[in-house]
């Protein structure tokens, strides 16, 4: 299991489009992926889940990936949260 704590770097927050792209990319991977905010866990394979987490600029989150392809998944998630382009 991989865990990683970081903060949302995009000034416009994590909005629908990047959330959808990451959810789509994560879906075929053989591992669980979730974003934990304020102790609540959101499934990162669901665009709705990611969006409902309301990840705004500066929000602290913990990324958790667990499974054979966890490293790939973590890289995708990190990119989603830490990317600065909107």
């Amino acid at each position: 299991m991989l865990t990683y704590t970081t903060t949302v770097a995009n000034e416009t927050g994590v909005h629908l489009r990047p959330a959808g792209e990451v959810a789509d990319a994560l879906l075929p991977l053989d591992c669980k992926a979730s974003i934990v905010k304020n102790g609540r866990s959101y499934d990162a394979k669901s665009i709705m889940m990611i969006t409902s987490a309301n990840l705004k600029y500066g929000t602290e989150v913990e990324l958790i990936c667990d499974g054979p392809e966890e490293e790939k998944a973590m890289a995708l998630l990190k990119n989603l949260i830490e990317s600065q382009e909107s």
Binding site: T12, S46, I47, M48, M49, S52, N54
Partner: peptide
């Protein structure tokens, strides 16, 4: 404004 982000988050939370 990023109110729409709040709205979107709230909507998604409901419609799941």
């Amino acid at each position: 404004s990023d109110d729409h982000l709040d709205a979107l988050a709230q909507l998604m939370g409901l419609l799941m």
